[in-house]
């Protein structure tokens, strides 16, 4: 286990890069390179001569890596991780996490496993963070809309904030809609009417 592995991560998003690289560093002293530029990807990867390449499954540039599987010597051919179905659970986990790995030169499974495990964990972590961020952003947007709707009601009907909120909530309940939907409708209508 002493020899270092050269790992390439193909990823544009700096936040995702940081999360993945941090995860890989915890595994020990590996030589980790990041490629953020998708132009001339095949050349960039082959120049680095990596042991493992990690790339988002949904990245269209995966097809470019397929070109490398045609490299002259079989020992230098990166092979998509999924081709080796020796470990179905790991393959499934990788697909779920959205990570694909290309392994060069027939590395032993026990050397690949920890790296792919770490990548899977980190890809999941990134997805979770993105979902949390989305949720937070959405909540903030909703609160802004509701505040605007309350403001419109307070001005137009001369009521206080609590009454405005109560009115929005009652309308939503009466119509079987969500509070945010009623608020959005009111804001849109008010914008249209000027």
């Amino acid at each position: 286990m002493a020899t270092r592995l050269k790992i390439i991560v193909v990823e544009k998003d700096p936040e995702r890069v940081r999360i993945i690289v941090d995860g890989l560093k915890e595994l020990g002293d590996h030589d980790i390179h990041v490629i953020t530029e998708e132009s001339a990807l095949a050349r960039r990867v082959s120049e680095q001569n990596p042991d493992i390449v990690l790339i988002d499954i949904a990245n269209p540039s995966r097809d470019v890596l397929e070109e490398l599987t045609l490299a002259a010597s079989p020992n230098e051919r990166p092979v998509a991780m999924f081709v080796d179905q020796s470990d179905n659970s790991m393959t499934r986990a990788a697909i779920e996490a959205g990570v694909s790995a290309y392994v060069v030169g027939g590395l032993r499974p026990e050397r690949i496993r920890p790296i792919l495990d770490a990548a899977i964990t980190r890809f999941h972590m990134f997805q979770r963070m993105r979902r949390e961020l989305e949720a937070t952003k959405q909540a903030l947007e909703e609160r802004k809309t509701i505040d605007r709707a309350k403001g419109i009601l307070m001005r137009r009907r001369g009521i206080d904030e609590d009454a405005a909120y109560g009115l929005l909530r009652k309308t939503a309940m009466d119509q079987g809609r969500k509070l945010i939907q009623v608020a959005e409708a009111l804001v849109t209508a008010s914008d249209l009417l000027g």
Binding site: I57, N59, P60, S61, D63, F82, Q85, I95
Partner: peptide
């Protein structure tokens, strides 16, 4: 699918 690799994997792995 975003790429031919993904189509091929989906078919060969039975998704």
């Amino acid at each position: 699918a975003p790429s031919w690799s993904v189509v091929r994997d989906a078919l060969t792995l039975g998704q």
